[in-house]
Amino acid sequence: MRIASVVSATLHGAFLLWAVLSFSSRPFEVTPAESLPVDLVNIEDFQKMTKGAKDAPKKEEPAPLVEKVEPPKPVEEQKPKVEKKEVKTEKESAPPPPQQQPDAIADQIKKMEQPKEAKAEQKPPTPPKKPEKQQPKFDADKIAALLDKRDPTRNAAADIAPSSNSPGLGAARGNDKQLSMTELAAFKERLKQCWNPPVGADPNARLYVVMRVMFNKNGTVMRDPALVEGTASNFGPALADSGRRALLRCQPYTMFKPETYEIWKDIEVKFDLQEMLGG
């Protein structure tokens, strides 16, 4: 019996070791589904579906709202500085080379920061000849950004701006083009017309559901919309049902063009009761 116990324990140990090794060598990799999140909130803030007039004066197109775009990574901001410093040390012995590359990168960064006034102020366009001004200053914003270890290509879930607006930091598997604001707004407007929020829900409670919808190419809903996440509440199921009904009732969604099908075939819609009822 003792021999059998030893044999059995040894076999179990070997099996466990094998299981641990084989499991750890092949980690689970969850590829986030490429989806386009849509908030069903405050549509007026983005665009109103007003009727146009032919004789109206021509107006500048307002820039799309990009305040929620992922900020340029601080790691990349540091890079040009390091290069400039190296250039400076070289400069002591040799005449200044045509510093094309740092300028290009710096310009790129400035371009990316253009929509964000706050960042643009902190970094005036300094020529690389004055290195003493390039010393990294203490900056609370940058420290916060440096400590931010999150994946730079993470999806900005439930954000109105899809990742297509950031030029440098696309998702690894992204095949994003750009869905026009008008299409999104039209989609939301249509959904809002069809949506009957559940009666009796407290508008002050933070009630929301996120539904994932997949579309056919003709704009009809491919299958029953799936609940992605939602608030834990008594009204949660009713809210999810109302969202599902709204999505099914409004189809087909003809505002989406078939050429951009890759973008809108999989969309996450957020139904937010508080914003809808104005609580």
Binding site: L16, A19, V20, F23, S24, P27, F28, E29, V30, P32, R150, D151, R154, N155, A157, A158, D159, E229
Partner: peptide, 20 residues
């Protein structure tokens, strides 16, 4: 809420080994 989901998701996806 979304921040929570984002910060939790990578951890769980990476650490589903037997020991964890």
């Amino acid at each position: 809420m979304n921040q929570v989901a984002q910060s939790v998701l990578p951890m769980t996806s990476a650490d589903l080994s037997l020991f964890t």
